[in-house]
Each structure stands twice: as structure tokens, then as C-alpha cells.
């Protein structure tokens, strides 16, 4: 059997467009997911029990249900409450909320890993709890969490392929389109896989650079 990439090469524009959508949705979800995730993580260790429970509950639900179900719930389920979102909005919101749950749990671990002496030093130097969290504990926690956060970023890029089920023209969807016209399934998904690998590798490398830069503690 021979593989014939010449069938798919004229369609490279599809892959390119799909890649851009994947980058766009992943980047936005990473951004919103990280911001919300830090917030969830901070609530998760808050000295106020209801806040802690709320964050714990959120993490529990997110981690205990499939990402695909969460996306379907937002896109197909929410209209029942009168909330109609475009596929793109549903996808980005869904992935953001999803990664926020995982990042929240990572942040919780990072915060708890900061030695209690840091809290005590901050406190005797006059900082309030929020001040100590913001200036002393969280910055240290985030540095320690970078490797785990990097993994989560890579996971999120891969999970963005689920957006193809909402008919968003991201990379996997582009692959489907190319396959359906060329029938060159093998070649198509080799290319799709290679592009994902490139994206995840670049992301990992960027985060490792950041780790190195921050490691001069």
C-alpha cells in the first residue's frame, strides 16, 4: 500500500486555518482558565469555610465529569435556561471552566506547599491575609506549580480537539473536512497529529524556559 501525501498537500490551507483556530481557542481558554483557576485555588484554601466548600465543590464536579459532557451541557443544555451561546463561545467557556478546575487544584497544592514560616513572616511584618497571599505566598506557589501548570496547558491543547464535536473548525475538524474530500485518512491524521505535537512541544518548551528564568530564586 502506498501513501500519497499529494492528495492532501493542496488542502494545506485547511490545516493552517484549523491550526489557527486551535491556537486561538486554546490560548483564550488557557488565559481565562488560569485566571479563574488561581481564583478557585485561592478560594480553596480560604480561611472562610463556605468559600472553601464552594471551591471544593467546583473542582469536584469539573474533575468528576467528562470534558465532552461539560461542553455539550453548555452548548446544548444551557439554551433551556435561555442562555444561547455560539459554538465558539460555548467551546472557549467550556474549556476555560474545565481547566480552571484542574488549575485550581494545582494552585491549592502550590499554596499549601509554601512553608508556614512565610505566612508568619508576612504577618509579623504587617501584611493581612490577602496581602500575604498576594505578595508572598501566591508568587512562590506559582513558581513551584509551573511544571504542573505546563502539563495542564498541554492537556488543554489536546482537549481542544473536542471542539470539533461542536462543529468548530479547529484542527481536528479541518482534518475531518480534508479526509471527507480526499479519503486520505491516514495522511490527513498524520499531519493533524504532527501539528498537535508541534503545538504541545512548543508550549512545553516555552514553559520550561519560564521555569528556568524563575528558578533564580
Amino acid at each position: 500500500m502506498g501513501f500519497d501525501f499529494s492528495l492532501v498537500t493542496p488542502r494545506l490551507g485547511f490545516f493552517w486555518a484549523g491550526t489557527l483556530v486551535t491556537i486561538e481557542t486554546s490560548a483564550l481558554s488557557l488565559l481565562f482558565g488560569s485566571i479563574l483557576g488561581v481564583f478557585i485555588g485561592v478560594l480553596r484554601v480560604a480561611p472562610v469555610r463556605p468559600l472553601r466548600s464552594l471551591a471544593a465543590c467546583y473542582i469536584y464536579v469539573i474533575r468528576g465529569t467528562p470534558t465532552l459532557t461539560q461542553l455539550f451541557f453548555i452548548y446544548f443544555g444551557l439554551p433551556a435556561l435561555g442562555i444561547n451561546l455560539t459554538a465558539m463561545a460555548s467551546g472557549i467557556i467550556g474549556l476555560s471552566l474545565n481547566s480552571a478546575g484542574y488549575i485550581g487544584e494545582i494552585v491549592r497544592g502550590g499554596i499549601e506547599g509554601v512553608p508556614v514560616g512565610q505566612w508568619e513572616a508576612a504577618r509579623v511584618l504587617g501584611l493581612s491575609y490577602p496581602g500575604a497571599m498576594r505578595f508572598i505566598v501566591l508568587p512562590q506557589a506559582l513558581r513551584a506549580m509551573l511544571p504542573a501548570i505546563g502539563n495542564e496547558f498541554v492537556t488543554l491543547i489536546k482537549e481542544s480537539s473536542l471542539l470539533s464535536t461542536l462543529a468548530i473548525a479547529e484542527l481536528t475538524m479541518a482534518g475531518q473536512q480534508v479526509r471527507s474530500v480526499t479519503y486520505a485518512s491516514f495522511e490527513t491524521f498524520i499531519i493533524v497529529g504532527a501539528i498537535y505535537l508541534l503545538l504541545t512541544t512548543l508550549t512545553s518548551m516555552a514553559l520550561r524556559q519560564l521555569e528556568k528564568r524563575w528558578d533564580v530564586l
Binding site: 513572616a121 508576612a122 511584618l125 508568587p139 512562590q140 530564586l217
Partner: peptide
């Protein structure tokens, strides 16, 4: 409180970052 009293710890507890 911090304006009135400072505490020096055995383990220093400087902010490492």
C-alpha cells in the same frame, strides 16, 4: 502590631522569590 514589634525567627524566613 508590626509597627510596635518585630520578630526574628530561628529559620530567618526571608521571602525567597
Amino acid at each position: 502590631i508590626a509597627r510596635m514589634v518585630g520578630l526574628i525567627f530561628q529559620q530567618f524566613n526571608l521571602y525567597p522569590h
